[in-house]
Computed example of a mutant assay.
Amino acid sequence: MQIIIAPAKKMVVDQDTFAVQGQPQYLQAAATLLAAMQRLSLKEAQALWRCSDKLAQAAYRRLLATTLAGPQTPALVAFSGLAYQAMAPDLFTAPALAYVQANLRILSGFYGVLRPFDGVVPYRLSLDERLAVGEYRDLYAFWGARLYAALDFSHGPVLDLASKEYSRAVAPYLRLGESLVAVVFAQLVDGRPKVKATLAKQARGAMVRYLAEHQVTTLAGVAGFDDPRYRFDPERSSDRQLVFIQR
């Protein structure tokens, strides 16, 4: 059972925790995007990133100095946002690390699709940021079906722990009999499920850790996610969506 998850904007360089075991599948496409971004002016880059002057200036300096050769960090520990902090991959057992390398795929606006131990460099580029590249008006058009093509639906549905802007890069290309099964973490507000983004990101990371530690390979196993903050809600769930409600 494959699992998809979104990246994080916050990234670090860490060459000590784990060794790089491979290179991203779409490295040449990343090189094309890097060249396009390095042609942007500071003003254009800031408009793309939609961030403050201070953040834009620091990110732009880093962008101009970036090379894909490194120093590289395994993707699993390069991203350090809320989901990855909750995942805590540096504490994984050897079987858990083997599980995520085989089953977890990180979707990326810059690299396309990453295995956990693919070597990456820090970048700032979300999939929904409107970077025009050659004939392509945005990153969804640039990547086309390639993110879908890198996933394996031969053993059943792919578990969707990614945010919507990343899932939508895969969903249009699904073939008959293939599906993404979304996981929703919500709390009840006036009797209706409401998703709080911060809590949902943390829960996604915690679920990856649970799946890896328990070597889960079925949706029934996913429904058994044991977390003190959430309970599985079978009545609100379906064959396309697993819903977990805050306790």
Rank of each mutant, 00 (worst) to 15 (best):
A35T: 13
A149Y: 09
L174P: 06
R236Q: 14
L107D: 03
V120S: 00
D160A: 03
T32Q: 10
Q72R: 15
Q23V: 10
K164Y: 13
Y173G: 00
P89R: 08
Q72F: 12
A58Q: 15
D118V: 08
K164S: 12
K10C: 00
S41Q: 04
V195R: 06
A200K: 02
M87A: 00
A29E: 15
F232N: 03
Y26P: 05
Y230C: 04
V184L: 12
V222N: 03
T66K: 08
C51D: 13
D118Y: 13
P74S: 14
R137A: 13
T66R: 14
L42A: 11
Q57H: 12
P7Y: 07
L33W: 09
T73M: 06
A98F: 02
G81M: 10
A169N: 05
F225W: 15
P157I: 01
Y148L: 01
F232Q: 10
L131A: 02
L151K: 06
F110D: 01
A141P: 05
E213D: 14
F92A: 01
F142Y: 10
L27W: 07
D53W: 11
A186M: 03
A6M: 10
Q38T: 01
T93E: 02
A141E: 15
V100I: 11
A36Q: 06
A220M: 05
A220H: 11
S80L: 00
A88F: 00
E165Y: 01
L219H: 12
A47L: 11
L139C: 08
A162L: 07
L82S: 09
G224I: 07
G191M: 02
V195H: 02
G112V: 10
Q38V: 01
E213L: 11
D190W: 04
F244N: 11
S237H: 07
A45P: 00
Q187E: 15
A141Q: 15
R130E: 09
S179I: 02
V77K: 10
V243Q: 09
T67K: 14
R175Q: 15
F110I: 06
D160P: 02
R209Y: 03
K194V: 07
D118E: 02
K9N: 14
P234G: 12
K194M: 04
S108C: 06
A31V: 04
L27M: 07
R229C: 04
I106W: 04
Y210T: 00
Q101C: 00
A45N: 06
Q15C: 14
A83L: 09
T67G: 08
A149P: 12
F18W: 08
R50S: 15
L27V: 05
P74Y: 15
Q85I: 11
L147M: 13
Q241H: 08
Q241K: 12
I245P: 14
G177N: 06
D16M: 11
